[in-house]
Design a protein around this nucleic acid. Structure first.
Lengths: 108, 108
DNA sequence: ACGAAAGTACGACGACGGTCAAACTTTGAT
DNA sequence: ATCAAAGTTTGACCGTCGTCGTACTTTCGT
């Protein structure tokens, strides 16, 4: 099974809050979401500004995907990342903004 | 230092999102917040329905207090717990409802 | 004064999660 | 065909966190 090339994306309605919060609690993952939220288009894994190694970044992308927060698809050798913002908003209203937007620049 | 009897309550404006999310990610702590949110009055530590020992519960109350989510004060030998809802809402708008209210009964 | 009730403090323990390096796979370009 | 680029997978390491039991402190009632 080409699991790596065709990653599983859960139905957002089937996701529990626990998993979402576990995804949101990591600052690297929130940074990924913030960068996606700010960008005008989807971003490849290598296009993020992250303070971790590639293998660690892969781990974070998987957590976000399995929490229903992002969608991943291939474009050539690059794996693109997109926010599932509307779907997520429908199931957890206000949560994304309250966490990611409010958390931009911890500088008061 | 009567630290036990006069616990420290941080200024909510000085609290960073990271600490808040670390507090909210634990289901026992969210249960505490939900029970407080449902109750018409403050609740003593022993008045909660929690699946953990007393010493563990003490730990969870401290985490919630240091994250600015609850206020604790003594009434005799009982330690009462109150939500700091308005203060918290002013600093992290929408976050409490998005997490605690939305998380009530994962049963669809 | 004594004892019970309500929490807290202190270690200790176990599990889980973030981290990395190294080896591997797949795709695109030369 | 070959090689480089982009990610993934695997395995290991380590710190942190939730958990508990025990001992301790404080207060209230008798």
């Amino acid at each position: 099974m080409d699991a790596g090339r065709n990653p599983h994306h859960p139905d957002v309605r089937a996701i529990d809050l626990q998993r979402v919060l576990e995804a949101l609690v990591d600052p690297v993952r929130r940074s990924i979401l913030a960068q996606l939220s700010d960008a005008p288009a989807d971003i490849a894994c290598g296009g993020f500004d992250l303070p971790v190694s590639k293998s660690t970044a892969t781990h974070h992308f998987r957590v976000l995907r399995e929490a229903g927060l992002i969608r991943q698809y291939y474009a050539g050798t690059s794996r693109m990342n997109a926010l599932r913002r509307d779907e997520f908003e429908a199931v957890f209203p206000g949560l994304f903004d309250a966490v990611v937007i409010a958390g931009r620049v911890p500088q008061g």
